[in-house]
Amino acid sequence: MIRRSLCGLLLLALTFVAIGSASERERETDDRGVLLAIAQAPLKTRSWHNPYQGQPDAVLAGKKLFLQHCAECHGPQARGIGRAVNLHLSAVQNATPGELAWFLRNGNLWRGMPAWSGLPEQRRWQLVAYLKSFRR
């Protein structure tokens, strides 16, 4: 029983590593997909208003959230790691706050961007406030 379990454990560990390598490779080629995915946001999202717009505290809170959740892929300066998307690009910065909020909630699951619907809506808007502060 124990020997069989250990064999199973070893096989699973190898599977994890193989799957992990595959997922890393996929992520490295998906930045165009992420940018295109923002365009999938419904038209109504363009009129959504960020309740934290213009609030410096919200930008700082958004930065804290960014470092906790996003910096691992996009980098601490949000310029991308590997080929994860650079969030300073005009395609991101020209998106409306509503489009960004929609994209954060839905992600782009087939292209490696997780859905952040587990974050309360207020936190997603704080993240958007931080992302939009790059334009200044």
Binding site: T15, F16, I19, G20, S23, E26, G107, N108, L109, W110, R111, G112, M113, P114, A115
Partner: peptide, 9 residues
């Protein structure tokens, strides 16, 4: 482990 954004093992 997050194998994909749509698959956790």
């Amino acid at each position: 482990y997050g194998a994909k954004a749509w698959w956790t093992t």
